[in-house]
Simulated assay, not measured.
Amino acid sequence: MATMNISLPDPMKNWVDAQTATGRYSNASDYVRDLIRRDQERLAKVAHMQMLVDEARQGGISDETMEDIRVRALHQAGLKR
Rank of each mutant, 00 (worst) to 15 (best):
K45N: 13
K45R: 08
K13P: 06
G78E: 07
N14S: 14
D34G: 12
E55G: 10
D68R: 00
S26H: 12
V46L: 04
G59W: 00
P11R: 02
D30C: 13
M49I: 13
D39P: 11
Q40P: 12
Q76R: 13
D30R: 14
L52F: 01
Q50R: 14
L35V: 07
W15D: 12
K45V: 10
L74F: 03
A77I: 04
M12S: 12
L79D: 04
D17W: 03
L52Y: 03
V53A: 06
I69E: 06
V16C: 02
N5S: 08
I36H: 01
R37D: 09
S29M: 02
S29C: 06
I36P: 01
D68T: 04
A56M: 01
S26F: 06
N14L: 07
A47F: 04
Y31R: 05
R37S: 04
M1I: 08
N5P: 13
D54E: 03
S62E: 08
P11T: 07
N5Y: 05
S29L: 05
Q19M: 07
A44T: 10
S29K: 06
M12R: 11
A44H: 05
R24V: 02
M49L: 10
E67A: 13
R24Y: 07
R72V: 07
I61D: 06
T22Q: 05
Q58E: 04
G78K: 02
